[in-house]
Amino acid sequence: MHARLADFIATAVATVRPGDDDSFFAMRAAFDALIADRSVWSSVLNAELSAILTDPNNEGGGRWLMQRLLIHACPRFTLSLATNVFELAAPQQRLEENKDFLLAPGGHVMLAFLHDQPVQVHRYALPADSDYDVFDPATALESLGTTTIPSKQRIDIDGRREAIDFDMPEDGVAVVMNAAPCVSQLWSIEARTLKPLGASIANERVSIMMTMLNELARVRHQPALEVVSQLTRHPDHNIRWCAMKCLGRLDGDAAIKHLEQLVADPHPYVRAAARTTLDKLESSKEVAHVHDAH
């Protein structure tokens, strides 16, 4: 690995802290210096292409994804070299080469184009009273305008509020640094209306935990009761409610106790779901009482 690239990664590993926005953007100056050194990227590409020529299976080589080379990945950030906008893993998603959808990044991003041609970048942001963590199909992103970005100029994207859209030449190359997700959901956004079409889980670990909770619920694994109860206080609202549903399969009395606590949950979806579930339970008790009376 090129010495400057190795130094940058080592500095980023020591600097970037999960959940700390400032620590990610503290890497701006180092990122700019890295981008300015063309020898870094020619070295990276030459090494990887040579590895493919000598070993077509690329065993032990870099991690090539669809039109993207993943240079470094850790729980705090990823660094990649992208040769097509489809796989920037943050700003835009294409379907059949039509710019029909945008994908909110989910985490903060720094990127820069290495090719000589300037790029037109369209920026969008959520309204001030909206939040990517609260999916609302009526919310439309607001356009922040279009900017011409020259080669090697860094673009910062606020993963909590922004999305961008751009066209890159077929022979274009971009360096992309993605922070770990800072929101719990990724919105798919229709480019024409700028309104969301759906949301998916942003954090792979959260998805894994939800799958495990669903399995514990399916088999009614009683030894997990205490741990599942603790997860109803997890920082991610998706896990809190998934744990709540699992708890309902393991211990009805414990579930009711936690439901009563979750009606005051900070996330509106969890609050509403807890309130609705409690109301249904109360209604079922009233119906049972009526039947017993007869």
Rank of each mutant, 00 (worst) to 15 (best):
L103H: 10
P266Q: 07
S283C: 06
L70S: 13
A6V: 07
L65G: 15
K99Y: 14
L111V: 01
L53A: 12
A36Y: 03
R123Y: 07
A140R: 11
D100R: 10
D20E: 12
S143Y: 07
N46A: 10
I256H: 00
A191D: 07
D236R: 08
M209Y: 05
K245L: 15
A180S: 14
F8Q: 05
R240P: 13
T193Y: 06
D156E: 14
K257T: 15
S188Q: 14
D21I: 05
H122L: 11
S229T: 14
W187N: 06
D158T: 13
R192Q: 12
E260K: 13
L262Q: 13
M212W: 02
H258S: 14
H2K: 05
L281T: 08
E142N: 00
Q67C: 08
D251E: 12
S23D: 06
S284M: 12
V287A: 09
V176H: 01
T232K: 06
V85G: 00
A128C: 03
A272R: 13
D20S: 08
G107K: 05
C246T: 15
Y269G: 08
L111M: 13
A29W: 02
E48K: 07
D251Y: 06
K257E: 15
S283Y: 08
L144M: 15
E59R: 04
K152C: 11
P150V: 08
H289W: 12
I149P: 10
S184T: 13
A6H: 03
L144I: 12
M209N: 04
P181G: 04
G159C: 06
L213S: 09
Q92W: 04
L194M: 09
S229V: 06
G145S: 14
P137V: 09
E226C: 03
Q153G: 09
D165Q: 08
